[in-house]
Computed example of a mutant assay.
Amino acid sequence: MRTSSSEYQKQWNKLMYNFYDYLPTKYKQASQRDWDVRKLIWEFKDGKRSLTVAKLVADKLIQFFGAEAKNIVFACIPASSEQKNITRYKVFADEVCRLSGAVNAFDHIHVHGARLAIHETKCSKNLETVQTIDFDKEFFNGKKILVFDDILTQGYSYAKFSCMLERFGASVIGGFFLGKTLLLN
């Protein structure tokens, strides 16, 4: 099923909160803060800062939603392979949900195969994937979902993932992103 730009626009009009601005490495004149954010994000992607970032995310989830956090399902957009997904999100999602009371969707989304991450290729729009993602569709039906991803660049991964969850009967309330890519002229 093809997703229309109006469906994506609907997702982009929802809550989209980023913790940090992320300056890509192609920009050579980076401040110490830019390098600190890069390092945090890169280490998070490698599973090394899971608990630190989980505390940050859980605190913000509680700040935004209070006691209602217990009725929210926390769903991470899968990484590019099963192993990277486990490394990046298993401990992290467990801890976010433990600290916030949210419901963890990690065990209800399964990654098979792998795809090239967009930053690993020369082309970003015509990327062919060999990854499949299986969802426990019944689990998501009727649930309020908060989506998480490490980096928000243009928002297509977030919108596509959110639309998919809504096709299963979920209601996506928005997304949290560790970093948002800054696109400078």
Rank of each mutant, 00 (worst) to 15 (best):
13 N>C: 12
176 F>T: 01
118 I>W: 10
84 K>C: 15
176 F>Q: 03
66 G>N: 07
48 K>E: 11
150 D>I: 00
36 D>G: 08
40 L>H: 02
111 V>R: 04
68 E>V: 03
2 R>I: 14
23 L>G: 00
26 K>H: 03
123 C>I: 01
61 L>Q: 15
11 Q>S: 13
123 C>T: 03
116 L>D: 13
71 N>G: 12
76 C>D: 09
100 S>R: 03
82 E>K: 14
182 L>V: 02
81 S>Y: 05
153 T>P: 12
30 A>D: 09
153 T>C: 09
43 E>H: 15
171 S>I: 00
87 T>R: 15
107 D>R: 15
2 R>D: 13
76 C>E: 06
147 V>N: 06
97 C>F: 11
125 K>G: 15
125 K>P: 14
124 S>R: 12
19 F>V: 03
31 S>D: 00
152 L>F: 10
43 E>V: 02
159 A>N: 10
181 T>K: 14
7 E>W: 06
81 S>G: 06
185 N>Y: 11
108 H>E: 06
1 M>I: 05
178 L>I: 05
113 G>Y: 12
184 L>W: 04
175 G>T: 01
26 K>S: 04
61 L>A: 13
38 R>S: 01
63 Q>H: 11
27 Y>A: 07
176 F>V: 04
45 K>P: 03
119 H>S: 04
35 W>C: 09
64 F>Q: 08
151 I>Q: 01
96 V>F: 04
14 K>L: 07
141 N>P: 15
179 G>T: 00
172 V>D: 13
41 I>F: 08
4 S>E: 04
30 A>C: 13
142 G>M: 12
74 F>K: 08
27 Y>P: 12
103 V>Q: 13
10 K>T: 05
166 E>A: 08
105 A>R: 07
107 D>W: 11
128 E>F: 08
102 A>D: 11
113 G>V: 01
